[in-house]
């Protein structure tokens, strides 16, 4: 009898230990999906729709005030969109929406040709225009091609801005619909994906940081290296004209959301999850991430000015450290790359 009691008590203790509050894979992915990814896409959709309204307002009333508002709205939309960059999973890439909304290497000649066709029988439908001729950065090109404050677009340019704004807003809304439960509910697939989803998301985060380092900052420094198997074609536009520190820092801010506990007290789900593994990766990564956000946001404009170079160099060095931390302790803590050979391991 005593033995039976002892066994039952041990089993109960074991079960209690098993039920101790922990962040499971499911909870983590559910939290990330609902509180981070969907929210970021919703913010991007809201900003894109405000941009579309603003572009229409300006087309109807091309006043300097409306132009200034349009410039501000464009930047807010670009920042909100760039914050989603680390999370371009599932529908963003499967449906080719990501490029249609915010492809950065737009072709100015294509944009100019499309603008020229406005009001003519050859006018193109935005839904038929490729990624390099539309989207937020095509709008940015029309507004900021000479850098600084927004330039006054032609009447045709105004019309194109309105069309592009509406198109971007519609596509961003499609992305939101694809993630939310009342829509296509990709979040369900994301959550069910378990470790595989965590792998994809973490790889997306690392790719986003590396892109900032190699494709944005290094390019501004004039030393863009061949980077992995990246197939991104060289940009036709000078990023210094339309980008600034705040837009560049946006993907990092998106990543930072993973570590914010959305109004709740205490650490975020990801923080708890990483700490459970006994790793200290979260603190190191977060400290470096915040440091990089501050440095990048503070980059003076124009980004290609000779005086900006030392600051860019410093920023590049710090982002390099962030890549190092991401590809070492962060992926270890998240179990993303196990030290097994892919041809069987031990």
């Amino acid at each position: 009898m005593n033995r039976l009691l002892f066994l039952s008590a041990s089993l109960a203790l074991l079960l209690l230990a098993g039920c101790a509050p922990k962040v499971s894979h499911r909870e983590l992915l559910e939290g990330i999906s609902k509180e981070v990814i969907t929210v970021l896409y919703q913010e991007a959709a809201t900003q894109a729709s405000q941009l579309a309204v603003s572009a229409e307002d300006y087309q109807n009333n091309p006043s300097p005030q409306n132009l200034a508002t349009l410039g501000v709205k464009w930047k807010e939309a670009a920042i909100a969109w760039q914050r989603t960059e680390p999370f371009r999973l599932g529908p963003a890439t499967d449906l080719w929406l990501s490029n249609k909304i915010g492809y950065q290497n737009i072709r100015p000649a294509t944009v100019d040709a499309n603008v020229a066709k406005i009001g003519t029988p050859a006018e193109v439908k935005l839904s038929a225009v490729g990624a390099s001729g539309k989207g937020l950065f095509a709008m940015g090109y029309l507004l900021f091609q000479s850098g600084g404050s927004p330039k006054i677009p032609s009447a045709k340019g105004c019309r194109y801005l309105t069309l592009a704004g509406r198109d971007a807003a519609g596509l961003t809304q499609q992305l939101v619909e694809a993630w939310i439960p009342s829509g296509k509910d990709y979040s369900k697939t994301f959550i069910a994906g378990g470790q595989d989803s965590l792998n994809k998301m973490t790889n997306g985060i690392i790719e986003s940081i590396e892109r900032l380092k190699e494709k944005r900052i290094a390019r501004l420094l004039g030393r863009e290296a061949v980077w992995g198997d990246d197939t991104e074609t060289p940009s036709k536009t000078d990023p210094a004209m339309i980008l600034d520190g705040e837009i560049l820092a946006a993907p990092l801010q998106g990543i930072d959301r993973l570590f914010q506990s959305e109004g709740k007290n205490g650490p975020s789900l990801l923080t708890v999850y990483i700490r459970q593994t006994g790793s200290s990766a979260e603190a190191d990564f977060l400290a470096q991430l915040k440091h990089c956000i501050l440095l990048t946001k503070a980059l003076p404009t124009p980004l290609n000015s000779p005086t900006t170079r030392p600051v860019l160099e410093a920023d590049y060095a710090e982002i390099k450290k962030l890549v190092g931390i991401s590809k070492s302790s962060l992926i270890s803590a998240l179990g993303v790359t196990l030290t097994f050979n892919s041809n069987d391991g031990d």
């Binding site: 499971s24 378990g194 470790q195 179990g335 993303v336």
Partner: peptide, 19 residues
């Protein structure tokens, strides 16, 4: 600890693997 956590998406035993 790192490796078992990475398998905590397994049904039934997943939660235990985080212990």
């Amino acid at each position: 600890r790192l490796w078992l956590s990475a398998r905590s998406d397994l049904p039934w035993i997943g939660t235990w693997l985080q212990e």
